[in-house]
Amino acid sequence: MHERVLLIEDEPHIVEALSFLLTREGLSVSTHADGSNAAETAARLTPDLVILDVMLPGKSGFDILNEIRGTEGMADTPVLMLTAKGQSRDRAAAQAAGASMFMTKPFSNREIVANIKALLE
């Protein structure tokens, strides 16, 4: 059974790129492009891993993460956070919010795939 990844990201090209990469690695990718009701989507899908952008229209990635962590059964789901701002305070905020990992855009394909695999194991 393929591990399922939920990608919450609003930039269509980045969604496309990550979907291509992860599919190629044999993962099943679902996407969600909006901040609002992203947590509901996650609760519905109960993915094995969530990739979450920090800057989303409608709702901040941190808020979504909180909601995910509050969802039953998802407290321990690995969450990889992505940000384009790349500031240390975002990293700290992400860790405080319970992110499993934090990566800055732009990222290396090899690195993000390796990280995702590591998080899934």
Binding site: I14, A17, L18, L21, T104, K105, P106, F107, N109
Partner: peptide, 9 residues
């Protein structure tokens, strides 16, 4: 960084 992410990936 957003367009650069797409370009790099």
């Amino acid at each position: 960084r957003t367009p650069m992410t797409s370009i790099r990936t």
